[in-house]
Amino acid sequence: MKRAALPLGSLVLFLLLWQLLAVSGTWSETLVPPPAKVWRAFIDVSTTHDGVRGYNGTYLIEHLDISLRRIAFGAGIGIVAGVVFGLLMGTAGWVRSLFEPWITFLRTLPPLAYFSLLIIWLGINEEPKITLLAVAAFPPVAVSTTAAVAAVPKALTEAARALGASRWDVVRDVVIPSALPETLTGVRLAVGVAYSSLVAAELVNGLPGIGGMVKDAANYNNTPVVLVGIIAIGISGLIIDGLLLRLERAVVPWRGRT
């Protein structure tokens, strides 16, 4: 109950401060709408009202579902590629020397820096969105996996080889289990980076999609809908991160105990 009381208490305090700020008159309701107005916007985009189905003909849950599928597909590609490259770079020095500068260069680029280029190359449909999310998710996993593989104790690998293990056996039975905790941390970071890139990915032709909804509502100064979209992204992100944390505890229960 104590663990639940603190988050709930902070939420109540946040809503109270929000309401006080909204009614203070410091800013207009266009800039800071009260919580009740945002709640009405949530109901509007989640139901059919005045003959309008949700926002732009799509319910909020459908916008979110489409965006989550884009993230799952795009981030999934980036995560798989990051794990593969991380294993290669961690086990082969020449591969690390060849690719690490490029991955670092890619990691420092903000998504908007290359999204326009992706649109030129791939058009305005799903391809640039998926590619941007994949590119955003790739570096964190590659970097964390590389560092984890490089940190595997040599004594373990040498002991496995002394017992007759092949190179593949060493990778499968020693390297991957040792690197898995840090790799899963990289996966969590990658999903967070992909989520933070969502609105950028849906800047062009993003409807339906939660990021596209936020962008479209911002074009018309529809702040309540913008806040609804931001809150939906944040809550779904918390849920996904919690699920990934549970997965991490189930897959690597020894983390922090050895």
Rank of each mutant, 00 (worst) to 15 (best):
A217F: 04
H49F: 14
V149K: 06
I124T: 10
T91M: 12
F99V: 11
A72K: 04
L203V: 04
V143H: 07
G229M: 09
I231T: 11
V199T: 00
V38Q: 07
P253V: 01
P35A: 09
Y195I: 15
R257G: 03
L106W: 07
L247E: 11
T157W: 07
G93M: 03
R255C: 01
L60F: 06
G86Y: 06
T185P: 09
P181D: 11
V170I: 10
M213E: 02
T145H: 02
Y220Q: 12
L15S: 03
L16S: 15
G86N: 08
D44W: 08
S197Y: 00
I235H: 11
M213I: 05
M1H: 14
I71W: 01
V174M: 05
G212I: 01
L189K: 02
A147T: 11
L87F: 09
L203G: 00
N125F: 12
L31I: 15
A134R: 04
G93H: 06
A151I: 01
T26L: 14
G76Q: 01
F138C: 07
G93W: 01
V171C: 10
K37I: 00
A159D: 01
G192M: 06
W94H: 12
S46P: 04
T26M: 14
E127Q: 12
A217K: 02
T104A: 14
G237I: 03
P181I: 02
L11T: 13
R172M: 10
I79H: 07
D44S: 13
G242H: 02
V170K: 10
G256W: 02
L8P: 08
W27T: 11
R172N: 09
A81W: 01
L180V: 09
Y195R: 11
A165V: 11
A148K: 05
L31D: 04
G90D: 05
S46F: 00
I43L: 15
A217D: 05
L118M: 08
L68E: 06
L11S: 10
L180T: 12
V38A: 00
G78H: 03
V80C: 05
P7F: 06
L112V: 15
V83D: 02
T30I: 14
G209I: 00
E62H: 14
